[in-house]
Simulated assay, not measured.
Amino acid sequence: MTACAHAAPRLPKLLFGSETRLSAEQIYPRLFDAILEQRLPPGSLLPEQALGNAFGVSRTVIRRVLGRLSDQQVVVQRPSHTAHLAAPDPQQARQVLSARRLAETTLIGLATQRARPAQIRQLRQLVERERLHHERGERCAAIRLGGEFHLKLAQMANNAPLARFLNGLVPMTSLIIARYEAPCCEHCAWQEHAAIIDAVEHGDADTALGLMQQHLDRLEDKLVLEQRH
């Protein structure tokens, strides 16, 4: 755990921009974006009461959000301990990326076989939102939506164990990208996501697999994973 995990951060409402009472589903992307933007540094404590005050909701609502982030390994929860943010080091980052590649190269073939038109439309809508955030310079929202693209694609494969496995890797990858991406990186993931959708829609498994492998290669290439001192 990093040094910043030893003190609970102050979490004013302005940090998250909550003006009205929010649901757990609305709080999740706001908190995740704050994490990706490193407004909450890696290792930070996440006290339920402080988060509840910041969002103007009960600890029960916050507990649901933290539970979801814990399932995705972005937040670490232990009995009788305050939850804190994960702080993946370069070695952990490489392990996550390697495991993710194994899962995604299997899932993409299944998704190509089983995709339905309604699911393709949902994917295209998601990528359009990702594009808009990218063009507005909202980098971390675009990263989060890019991760959601891969999770939606995994659902299309209709293999629940593999989809659950990926659910514990993709959000962590988003955290890794936010932390380790090289400065001034111009990589536009949404364009590659759009190309993958085209291949899946046409039932072209070989092209979809090749595009996914290239996409994961570029994702890894833009990361600076040497040990930080």
Score class of each variant (00 low, 15 high):
residue 123 L to V: 02
residue 108 I to M: 05
residue 106 T to R: 11
residue 77 Q to H: 05
residue 39 R to D: 11
residue 43 G to T: 00
residue 94 R to C: 03
residue 15 L to Y: 11
residue 127 V to N: 12
residue 24 A to H: 13
residue 41 P to F: 00
residue 52 G to H: 01
residue 81 H to F: 04
residue 39 R to Q: 13
residue 43 G to P: 07
residue 22 L to Y: 04
residue 95 Q to A: 12
residue 77 Q to N: 02
residue 37 E to F: 00
residue 53 N to D: 15
residue 33 D to F: 02
residue 7 A to C: 14
residue 7 A to R: 14
residue 23 S to T: 15
residue 6 H to Y: 14
residue 120 I to S: 08
residue 108 I to A: 01
residue 46 L to K: 03
residue 49 Q to D: 12
residue 107 L to Y: 02
residue 55 F to T: 01
residue 127 V to L: 13
residue 92 Q to N: 00
residue 90 P to T: 01
residue 60 T to R: 13
residue 22 L to E: 14
residue 86 A to L: 05
residue 23 S to E: 07
residue 89 D to P: 00
residue 25 E to T: 11
residue 84 H to M: 05
residue 36 L to G: 04
residue 37 E to W: 01
residue 55 F to M: 00
residue 48 E to T: 15
residue 46 L to W: 03
residue 83 A to G: 05
residue 88 P to Y: 04
residue 90 P to A: 04
residue 127 V to Y: 09
residue 31 L to P: 03
residue 84 H to R: 15
residue 45 L to E: 15
residue 46 L to T: 08
residue 65 V to Q: 05
residue 42 P to K: 02
residue 47 P to H: 09
residue 103 A to D: 09
residue 59 R to V: 11
residue 9 P to R: 08
residue 120 I to Y: 06
residue 74 V to P: 08
residue 116 R to H: 12
residue 85 L to A: 02
residue 86 A to D: 09
residue 11 L to Y: 03
residue 124 R to C: 06
residue 110 L to N: 02
residue 32 F to K: 05
residue 49 Q to G: 09
residue 83 A to C: 07
residue 59 R to A: 11
residue 39 R to S: 14
residue 89 D to L: 05
residue 42 P to H: 03
residue 104 E to F: 01
residue 110 L to E: 05
residue 106 T to S: 13
